[in-house]
Design a protein around this nucleic acid. Sequence first.
DNA 1: TTGTAAGCGTTATCAA
DNA 2: TTGATAACGCTTACAA
Lengths: 347, 347
Amino acid sequence: MTYSYRVSIKDIAKTAGVSYSTVSRALHDSPLISQEVREQIQKIAESMGYSPNALAQGLQAKRTNSVGLVITTISDPFFADIVNGVEEEAKKAGISVFLATTRNDPDEEIKIIETFSRRRVDGVIVASSRIDTGYANRLEQIHIPVIMVNTESEEGNFIYSASVNNFTGACQGVNHLIELGHRRIGYLGVSNRLVSNKQRLEGYLDTLKKNTIDVDPAWIIINKETSPGELSLDFKIGQELGSEILKTDITAVFCYCDTIAAGVMETCRRRGFSIPQQMSVVGFDDNFICEILYPPLTTIHQPEKEIGQKAMQMILKCLAGDDVEDILLDPHLVIRESTAHPYNRSN
Amino acid sequence: MTYSYRVSIKDIAKTAGVSYSTVSRALHDSPLISQEVREQIQKIAESMGYSPNALAQGLQAKRTNSVGLVITTISDPFFADIVNGVEEEAKKAGISVFLATTRNDPDEEIKIIETFSRRRVDGVIVASSRIDTGYANRLEQIHIPVIMVNTESEEGNFIYSASVNNFTGACQGVNHLIELGHRRIGYLGVSNRLVSNKQRLEGYLDTLKKNTIDVDPAWIIINKETSPGELSLDFKIGQELGSEILKTDITAVFCYCDTIAAGVMETCRRRGFSIPQQMSVVGFDDNFICEILYPPLTTIHQPEKEIGQKAMQMILKCLAGDDVEDILLDPHLVIRESTAHPYNRSN
DNA sequence: TTGTAAGCGTTATCAA
DNA sequence: TTGATAACGCTTACAA
């Protein structure tokens, strides 16, 4: 049968010859209604192609069963995994997710959160947030759970956070290189992920120090600042940093992330440097590209999908009124083939 | 200042000592209101932290300024680019996007679209849809624009479609190999993307035929069927198909997508087959992994982001009441270093 | 220029 | 067991 634009509960009531509160009850399997009438109405609703209006429901229930998810860019596999985890958990709980990207621009981030707020999402998950304390306070006024995943803001106690321990991750990576016998180890970082870069750099420095290795400042190379909102490609950054690092005397390099490492490897190859024989390379993230690269990349595994899931679960808990605690997950080393003893020709 | 849960237009009206329609008008810069009062009210709204309720607005306007985006999985860079394009255009137009993934399961797909329908999204974009005509009719009843991007359903005229020409893409890839001098060329396909795989296979077959090359059935390998909803990793599929193809006498292979190609290359490397010297490899998509691979992958470029943008623009046009036409974009060949003359040792 | 009131589609609280 | 009715927060005729 054909039906008019959008069938409402009133339309059903008219057809069924009952009041619309009766219809509402029937549709909700309310016990205050006769079996017979209920089935009747449900059948009619079905045949009329009724689809409840979630806006109206949300308006009245003050609950939308939706969350907002804010990421920097979808192109980075790192975020893709977070989205995956969030979406999976959301689906289980019958929650829809709004996705928006900031391109690493704090102003964009704020705008997006405002939009989510207007839409009355039940919670917000922000990955790699760069917003400052000033705005954080404003966030708090919204009175919905906000989970910061791997926050990139230096300031403030945020509402809740779920992160990976960047420091220990870097320690593991550098330790691995030291255990292999390397002494001259470089660090390749990025300037536009302030906090995580800093934490990884600290892990690097700390590990070298503990092993009584004096760091040559030339070993540490951070790409130059880009204007806010501009998101240069990590692969390209890696290529550029790679050619810088080849000017030094290092035998191994710890990279901020896998994609940077990929760029470094590409440059090494072009320059005739073989990996791992002449240069050991360690990444961070454990994206799917690690296995595609040649040689497969030794890296620090971040449980990104898990973090996404956990973040979503935290929101659910908040909504249920349960207590939630911040999460700091530990990454772990995954050894592949891009690392070896220094100048080891047998590999 | 602290304020109660959520400030409504009524609260502002009370504070301002006017009726709430006046507030509404002031907030919308209505001309039927005095400059003075307007500024007054806007100031008050601001200070009270007013954030309009998009649910209420949507309910009354019958327009939510939101769209639903359905993809198979976020982990495939192919979809990531589509999401990118959609999101970019949506943002420009002040539209929020709901994202949901199907994991290639048609039942999931239907559920998701039902959910979007309840939320009264203004439009839906579905990538790689597998739903059949039966459901397509139901979709039509919803009376909102639905754009199918690279549909994977064999049946039916859908509402609107935006696709890439898989056939000509494959022709270009295979032609390139033939021009390089290859005669024994393989095809590596997938079973769970029925339509696009079929179209690419047809392009492959057609091109060989036009060049009077008799195809040995052993050259064509499609991975075995997986259960619906199960999404095996293309890289792994590529690795497996790769070892099959090495049993044949081909000198070049055209792969369904870049990730498959990456798997093939990995297998070749393990088996001591050098690329492109002993085996030329062509991919499809032109993901960012093409440049990361060694050697960089020759492939067919799909304008995925553009398709996402176009799909979103089509929805906007529909909503504006303008005519829209289906789109079939042409892919193009991108030559990198994974292809060469057969057994060419000088490269 | 402003206020009143109806309506968007639900759910929930009353009475009946 | 059912039916009015109010309320959710907003926009917009229609009156004043």
